[in-house]
Design a binder for these strands. Structure first.
Length: 655
RNA sequence: GUGCCUGUAGCUCAGCUGGAUAGAGCAUCAGACUUCUAAUCUGAGGGUCGCAGGUUCGAAUCCUGCCAGGCACGCCA
C-alpha cells in the first residue's frame, strides 16, 4: 500500500537520524519530506534545518554525515547530501509498482479517503432567485457547489445537496407585475424560449419602465438625475482623491456627502410616489395574504422558471437531493424569532420590531466579530413581516430537523460574509448544538473588465449561462470538424458539450475561491493551453493508444510486474505526481479548496503531454518498456478521470 | 470610517502549513506533423513577488505599518 510505503521511508529516515544523533527529541511525525527541485537529485528530500539547534551543528554538516553513514534499506537506493538537504533516492521500480497497482486496484476510488466517515454534511448551493435566468456569476456558484459536494463525498461524508429557492419577495412581484401589465398571457411555449428567460424579460421590462417613470418624475420635479448617477458620484470621488488643496478637498467631500444623502432621500421619495413600485408592493401584500389570483400567477411563473433552471442544471451537471423554498421556510423563521424573544436571546423595540443586540452577538462569537463596530440586527419588522435573515433562520432549523447534520455548508458569495457570521451567531444564541458545524464556503465575484461596470441582469450586462454554454458548444463542434473528425456523428453533440463544459469548469475552478474572476464577455474561453479540453485531450490520446494496441494485437494486462526501472526520469516523475493525488484530495477536502484539484490536473496533463511526445508507447524499443509505458498511461488516465469527475467534467474517449 | 478579501511576467493565474535557481498558460519570436490524435511538443525572451520595515541561518510565504483595487457595514435579497 502506498501510505504504508511512504510511512516506511519516513520511519527509516527517522531511525537513521537517531542512530547518529541519539539524544535528539525528533519524532517520526516531525519528518517532513519534500520534493527536490531537480528530479535527478532524488525523489524525496529532507531539509536538515530543524536538527541544527539541538545538535549544535550546521545543517550542511548534518546532511553530509547522514549521507555518509547510510548503508542500505529495501526501499531506499541511496542518500546524498546537497547543501543542507539530504536527498533520497528510492527504489523506483518497487515504488512505481506500488503506485500503479494501487491505482489499478482502486480504479475510480483512487484518491478517496475517510475524512468524513459516518458524518452527515449538507451543502447548500445555487440558491437562485426565480425572477431571472442564471448568469456567469451563478455558474461559478453552481460549479463550486457541485464540485465541493463531489469532493466531500469522495472524502467519505454522507453529502446532502440542497438548493434554497428564493421564490418570494418584491423582486418576484416585479416580474409578475410586468407580465400582468404587458404580458398578454404569453407562455414560454408560444414564445419558444425557456421559462426563466421569459420571466427574466419581464423583470428587465419592469426595471426599465421604473427607470422611465423615475426620469419623468425627476423632470416634473426639476431634479437633475445625472447628479445622482453612479458615474457622476464615482467621478466626484476620483476628483477628491486627486485634489491636493485642503480646503478644496473638504469642499468636494462635503458636496459628495450631500449629494449622496440627497440621492438616497430622493430615491425614497420617488419610490413612495411611484405608481409601478406601489403596484408591486401591493402585489407582495396580496401574495402574503394568499390572494388566490396572485398565488396562481406566482405558481405559474415560478414553475416556468424552475423548468428553465432544471435544463441549465442538467447541462452543468448540478444535482440536488433536497429543495427548500423560501416561501415555505420564512414562517418557521418567524416562530423561532418569537421563541428566541421569549427565551431572552432577542429583544423587542417599542414599535414591536424584534432585534438581536450587538453585545449578545459579540459575546457568543467574539472571534467572528473582533474589531467590528457591530450594530443591532433586525430580525422581524414591526408589522410582523420577515426580513432576509428571518427566513435563513427558518431554513437552517428546518435543515437540521430534516437531517441529523454534523456539518452544514453554505456556498454563497463572499459579499455575504457578515450575514453568515450573524446567522451562525444567532444559531448559537438559540443554543442549537449543530451551530458550530455551520460553515460559509465563500467565493469571490465574477467581474467584468475595468470600465465595463458590474454584472447585472437588469441592466443587461450579465453573461447568460445558457447563451455562454451554447456558444462554447458551437465553437467546440466547429473545432472538431476542423480537425480530423474522430467522433461518431451521433456523439458529436454530446462530445462538443463535454468539451465546452470542461473548458468552462476548469476556467472557473482553477482560480482560488477567494479571488474575483475577471471575465471579459468579448473574449472567448480558450480551448488551447492550460484548459479543460487539454486535460480531456490527454485522456483521449491515452484511450487512442489502447485502441491502437488492440488493433495491433498488442496485449497488455494491468495485473503484472512491469519493468518500471526502464522508464525515464521524466516518466518516473509523473508516477510520483500520481502518487500525490490522494494527498491533494485530502488537503482540498479539509480546506474546501477545489482549485487545488484543477491545478493538479493541469499540472499532470502538461507533464503527460511532454512525455507523450518524447516516449512512444507502441513503438517502444522493447516489449518490457512498452508494457511499463502502458501502465503509466493507464494510471495517468485513471487519475485524470477521477479528478475530472470530482470537478463534474466528463472525459470523452475521443475528441 | 471600521472589518474582510485581493495585489506575483504585457495579460490570465499557480505557488502562500517559511527552505535549494519564483512556475504555468496566453501573447511574441524560432523550430517540430509520411510518426500512439499538432486542441500537441521543443526552445528563446519576459519578474524590484504593491511599497517600507521587522522576525529568522533563510521570507513571495509569518508580523507591523502604508499604498492600490474589490466587497460588506439596509426595516434589499
Amino acid at each position: 500500500m502506498l501510505i504504508e510505503y511512504l510511512q516506511e521511508i519516513k520511519k527509516e529516515i527517522h531511525s537513521h537520524i537517531l542512530k547518529q544523533f541519539p539524544s535528539l527529541s525528533l519524532k517520526e511525525q516531525d519528518i517532513r519530506l519534500e520534493r527536490p527541485p531537480q528530479p535527478e537529485w532524488g525523489e524525496f528530500a529532507f531539509g536538515c534545518f530543524p536538527l541544527s539547534k539541538e545538535t549544535k551543528k550546521k545543517p550542511v554538516e548534518i546532511a553530509q554525515s547522514l549521507a555518509e553513514g547510510f548503508s542500505s534499506h529495501p526501499c531506499i537506493e541511496s542518500l546524498n547530501a546537497n547543501g543542507p538537504y539530504l536527498n533520497i533516492k528510492i527504489k523506483k521500480s518497487s515504488f512505481s509498482q506500488i503506485v500503479c497497482k494501487e491505482i489499478f486496484a482502486q480504479k475510480n476510488r483512487f484518491g478517496s479517503n475517510s475524512l468524513g466517515q459516518g458524518k452527515a454534511l449538507m451543502i447548500e448551493y445555487s440558491s437562485p432567485n426565480t425572477n431571472k435566468p442564471l448568469h456567469i456569476g451563478h455558474v461559478r456558484n453552481n460549479l463550486l457547489g457541485m464540485a465541493l459536494a463531489n469532493l466531500l463525498e469522495f472524502c467519505g461524508y454522507n453529502v446532502i445537496k440542497a438548493n434554497l429557492i428564493n421564490d418570494r419577495g418584491i423582486h418576484i412581484c416585479k416580474s409578475m407585475l410586468a407580465y400582468q401589465n404587458w404580458g398578454n398571457n404569453v407562455t414560454p411555449e408560444q414564445e419558444g424560449i425557456k421559462g426563466d428567460h421569459l420571466v427574466g424579460k419581464f423583470y428587465v421590462q419592469f426595471e426599465s419602465a421604473l427607470k422611465k417613470e423615475q426620469e419623468e418624475y425627476a423632470s416634473s420635479q426639476g431634479v437633475d438625475l445625472s447628479l445622482f448617477s453612479k458615474p457622476y458620484l464615482q467621478g466626484l470621488k476620483d476628483k477628491i482623491k486627486e485634489t491636493k488643496d485642503k480646503p478644496e478637498k473638504e469642499r468636494l467631500q462635503k458636496e459628495y456627502q450631500n449629494l449622496n444623502e440627497r440621492a438616497e432621500k430622493w430615491e425614497q421619495e420617488f419610490l413612495e410616489n411611484s405608481k409601478l413600485y406601489s403596484q408591486a408592493m401591493e402585489m407582495l401584500r396580496l401574495w402574503e395574504k394568499e390572494d388566490p389570483e396572485i398565488r396562481a400567477l406566482w405558481s405559474k411563473m415560478n414553475s416556468w422558471v424552475m423548468k428553465g433552471f432544471e435544463e441549465t442544471y442538467q447541462k452543468l451537471g448540478c444535482k440536488f437531493d433536497k429543495i427548500y423554498r423560501e416561501s415555505e421556510t420564512y414562517s418557521l423563521g418567524k416562530e423561532h424569532v418569537e421563541k428566541g424573544l421569549k427565551e431572552g436571546a432577542f429583544y423587542r423595540k417599542e414599535d414591536g420590531s424584534i432585534w438581536v443586540s450587538a453585545e449578545k452577538l459579540q459575546q457568543i462569537s467574539p472571534d467572528a466579530f473582533k474589531g467590528i463596530p457591530l450594530k443591532d440586527k433586525l430580525l422581524l419588522r414591526a408589522d410582523g413581516t420577515s426580513v432576509y435573515i428571518t427566513q435563513d433562520i427558518g431554513t437552517a432549523i428546518l435543515k437540521a430537523s430534516d437531517y441529523p447534520l454534523d456539518k452544514s455548508l453554505y456556498v454563497v458569495a463572499s459579499e455575504q460574509n457578515l450575514h453568515f457570521k450573524t446567522l451562525f451567531a444567532i444559531m448559537k444564541l438559540l443554543r442549537f448544538s449543530w451551530a458550530d458545524g455551520c460553515y460559509h464556503a465563500a467565493y469571490g465575484m465574477v467581474t467584468l473588465p475595468k470600465g465595463m461596470g458590474k454584472i447585472k441582469s437588469r441592466e443587461g450586462t450579465a453573461v447568460d449561462a445558457d447563451d455562454l454554454i451554447a456558444e462554447m458548444t458551437q465553437r467546440a463542434k466547429s473545432k472538431m470538424k476542423e480537425e480530423n473528425l474522430r467522433v461518431e456523428e451521433d456523439k458529436l453533440e454530446e462530445t462538443a458539450l463535454d468539451i465546452a463544459l470542461a473548458a468552462l469548469k476548469i476556467f472557473i475552478l482553477q482560480v482560488y475561491p477567494d479571488k474575483d474572476i475577471q471575465f471579459d464577455p468579448h473574449k472567448v474561453i480558450e480551448f488551447t493551453g492550460d484548459t479543460g479540453p487539454a486535460i480531456q485531450y490527454s485522456y483521449a490520446r491515452i484511450c487512442s493508444i489502447f485502441r491502437k494496441a488492440k488493433e495491433q494485437n498488442k496485449e497488455w494486462k494491468e495485473d503484472q510486474l512491469f519493468a518500471y526501472d526502464l522508464l525515464s526520469q521524466q516518466e518516473f516523475s509523473l508516477i510520483q505526481d500520481l502518487s500525490e493525488f490522494p494527498q491533494i484530495i485530502a488537503t482540498a477536502g479539509e480546506s474546501y479548496n477545489i482549485s487545488l484539484i484543477a491545478n493538479y490536473l493541469l499540472n499532470i496533463t502538461r507533464k503527460y503531454a511532454s512525455i507523450y511526445a518524447a516516449y512512444p508507447v507502441l513503438k517502444a524499443e522493447s516489449e518490457q518498456l512498452r508494457d511499463a509505458r502502458f501502465a503509466l498511461a493507464k494510471a495517468t488516465a485513471q487519475v485524470i478521470q477521477n479528478g475530472m469527475s470530482l470537478l463534474g467534467a466528463n472525459v470523452p474517449e475521443s475528441m
